[in-house]
Nucleic acid binder design. Structure first.
Length: 468
DNA sequence: GCGATCACGT
DNA sequence: ACGTGATCGCA
């Protein structure tokens, strides 16, 4: 079964990637019968047969293989949406009650400290309370006054306990509103499962996005986040959850694409990449504390995003000059990366687009803009896309092969979710060990080259336990 | 209905 | 960098 959706062609070739303009393709409009009821999951509702496609032969050959892959993925995503993921509704409700109770206590504590009631969910009202009523010194200005975001409140919290309580309240309310109430609302009453919608055209890099609900931003970590994730589980005790995730994909891709010997060596030796960068930044003999490793980790991620010293300074809470020094040191220690980035920018200037290892393109009109800010932003997009996009290509290819594998064997195990570098399955006990071997082998085998991709696999009774 | 603000993930 | 979503407060 294979499909071609005209929007994919537009997605892969247009420089206006977010504003899909159908006007050039009006002839094809009658092929669309978009259903209002997404739970019908009728594949035909928005796709038309590949063979009927009139654009089949007009697809630019350079993106043909990506177009092919995306077409073959359509029924796979549709299948995953239709399958959905079971959620323990009662357990989720109970956690919600715990959170609500704790949130209510924080709320009263805040009123008590301030001496008046107000809407803590209103950033505007929090501004008034903190900066006008309590006279706390302000930091960064925004359109409506002074920001009271996480960064600002953390800083204020060093002197004024009220800010810490507000932060705790916010965290609890976020969990309650988005991840308890939000998820309870979308449990399908017939299937008792949550059926997300994957948007194959959602991200300009080639990544998927997930909506109604977004299952790609379920909180991770200990405490309430772990309890919430533990509600995602198999419907029957004959099954386990299996989570397979690519280890450090983007940095490994950067190593492969850039050919930087130092970066490659680090991975080949099996060293911890963040600790390695930390020694580069703070000296070979320095004791790498968790704090120094945390900074190095942010630098490593920052480089993938093409981040500026200014941007990094906010993430690691230091001066822009200091942050710029870290970035410069990174490039000095991994010189192949700098050269690789330059070649990407040269390509973007010459061609107007950048591309992934597999030939997926993103058009970057901003690199030729006369405005310096726009140009700088465009250069960050240009640098990030081949890395993030190659990672997206890799997991999509793996999903295709895994899907084919699952189909051939008439197994009971099913692929449920994709979270950018992670795949979640429910596997039957009788197939568990074999699935682990096969899934790892397929995922690690997708990307060629001397630097192997590594996949971590964990199994457990639910999504939290299987996270390892 | 919609922009602004905030916060969650990779 | 790339996303989605909840809430507020105004239109």
């Amino acid at each position: 079964m294979s499909f071609l959706d005209i929007r994919h062609y537009k997605y892969l070739t247009s420089s206006i990637d977010r504003n899909l303009d159908f006007s050039a393709f009006m002839d094809f409009e009658h092929h669309y019968q978009v259903s209002e009821n997404k739970h019908e999951y009728s594949i035909e509702r928005s796709y038309f047969s590949y063979k009927e496609s009139l654009v089949e032969n007009t697809v630019d050959s350079s993106i043909q293989s990506i177009m092919d892959m995306e077409s073959k993925l359509i029924p796979i995503f549709a299948q995953m949406e239709r399958t959905g993921v079971y959620v323990d509704e009662k357990k989720l409700r109970d956690i919600g009650e715990d959170i609500a109770r704790e949130s209510k206590n924080k709320e009263l504590e805040i009123y008590d400290l301030v001496g008046e009631r107000f809407n803590i969910n209103s950033a505007k009202q929090v501004q008034v309370i903190l900066f006008e009523k309590l006279g706390i010194p302000v930091s960064k200005k925004i359109k409506t006054g002074y920001t009271v975001d996480n960064e600002a409140l953390s800083l204020i919290g060093q002197k004024y306990e009220i800010a810490n309580i507000i932060l705790q309240y916010r965290t609890l309310e976020k969990l309650r509103s988005t991840y308890i109430d939000g998820l309870l609302r979308v449990i399908n009453p017939h299937t008792k499962r949550i059926h997300t919608t994957y948007n194959q055209l959602g991200a300009s890099t080639g990544r998927l996005s997930s909506e109604s609900p977004n299952l790609q931003n379920i909180p991770s970590g200990s405490g309430y986040p772990a309890r919430i994730k533990s509600c995602f589980c198999p419907e029957s005790s004959e099954f386990s959850f299996l989570v397979a995730d690519y280890s450090q994909v983007e940095l490994r891709i950067l190593a492969s694409l850039s050919g930087d010997t130092s970066l490659i060596e680090t991975f080949v030796r099996g060293e911890d990449i963040h600790t390695r960068t930390a020694r580069f930044l703070f000296g070979e003999d320095a004791t790498i504390t968790s704090e120094l490793r945390r900074i190095a980790k942010s630098v490593n991620f920052g480089v993938i995003y093409g981040i500026t010293g200014f941007g990094l300074s906010k993430v690691i809470n230091t001066s822009p000059a200091e942050a710029t020094k870290y970035i410069d040191t990174f490039y000095a220690m991994y010189p192949g990366v700098r050269a690789y980035y330059q070649s990407i920018l040269d390509g973007a200037n010459k061609n107007g687009y950048v591309e992934t290892f597999y030939g997926r393109r993103r058009y970057i009109p901003g690199v030729r803009d006369s405005n310096k800010m726009i140009r700088a932003g465009a250069e960050r997009e240009a640098i990030n896309m081949p890395i993030q996009g190659t990672a997206a290509d890799i997991i999509k290819l793996a999903m295709l092969r895994i899907s084919n594998f699952l189909k051939e064997g008439t197994y009971k195990s099913r692929m449920l979710l994709q979270v950018h570098d992670e795949l979640v399955f429910e596997v039957h006990e009788s197939e568990k060990d074999m699935m682990e071997k096969q899934i790892r082998s397929i995922m690690e085998g997708v990307f060629p080259g001397p630097l192997k991709l590594l996949v971590d696999i964990h199994t457990g009774a639910n999504w939290s336990e299987a996270k390892g």
